[in-house]
């Protein structure tokens, strides 16, 4: 049992890690086939895991409804949404008696599934993203204070970039456009590169540890 839970995954990780690291240096088409095949395997495993995920989702919400926990009505809506969308996508014939097969349109005509997509998913997702603008404003009001010299500098840069990215700002103070570009292209790009270098080294070090079995926490915590 320990072999299956510990040694075997470590061996698989080591072999796969070394092969896929070396794959980067091999231009031969076989190397790319290996990568695409590996990706297919991941997709297949992902599909099995999705079953676990959906089971977990149904279980959690079933418990909520059963116990009538706060917000259990939302769990009912979730069940309703999943069942209706699945049923419409798989079974409802709309256009010329054709099954939609998960497609939004057939021959340019909207399917029932397409209707759900266009008139529920698109506006709902758009709404969620639009909330971002409101939250940015409230976060800026609450947190953007010149508490120190550095914060004041950040504040000034933010105001310039906010002005420089919109026509009104460039119209009132034309120089903000050029300063904004300079901030984005020089200051922003160089600092991001520095952060990226640190992140990349961290990611490579973590990968090395995982490949050589020095980091095992992802297998389920501590040591054997």
């Amino acid at each position: 049992m320990t072999f299956l839970r510990r040694q075997l995954p470590l061996v698989i990780t080591f072999v796969a890690g070394v092969i896929f690291t070396l794959q980067y240096y091999v231009p031969h088409p076989k190397s790319e086939i290996l990568l695409t095949e590996g990706s297919l395997w991941i997709q297949i495993i992902g599909l099995f895991a999705l079953v676990l995920g959906v089971t977990s989702l149904f279980h959690i919400h079933a418990v909520k409804i059963k116990r009538q926990e706060p917000g259990w009505g939302y769990s009912l809506i979730l069940y309703f949404g999943i069942v209706v969308t699945l049923a419409v996508g798989l079974f409802v014939q709309w256009v010329g008696g054709q099954h939609p097969g998960g497609k939004e349109t057939i021959d340019g005509a909207m399917t029932a599934f397409g209707w759900i997509y266009t008139y529920t998913m698109v506006p709902l997702q758009g709404t969620m993203f639009a909330i971002l603008a409101f939250f940015i404003a409230s976060a800026a009001y609450r947190s953007f204070r010149a508490r120190s010299k550095e914060a004041a500098l950040l504040l000034t840069a933010a105001v310039i970039v906010m002005m420089g990215r919109v026509p009104l700002g460039e119209y009132l103070l034309p120089v903000t456009g050029d300063i904004t570009l300079w901030i984005l292209n020089v200051l922003n790009a160089s600092v991001r590169r520095a952060i990226l270098i640190g992140i990349s080294l961290g990611a490579v070090a973590l990968s090395i540890k995982i490949i050589f079995g020095l980091e095992r926490a992802y297998l389920g915590g501590g040591k054997e």
Binding site: V51, G53, G220, G222
Partner: peptide, 18 residues
């Protein structure tokens, strides 16, 4: 991500055990 969920389930279980 369901795979992350399964991995994290194992990790938390192990932590509680430890």
């Amino acid at each position: 991500d369901p795979i992350v969920m399964v991995v994290c389930q194992e990790i938390t279980k192990q932590s509680y055990l430890e």
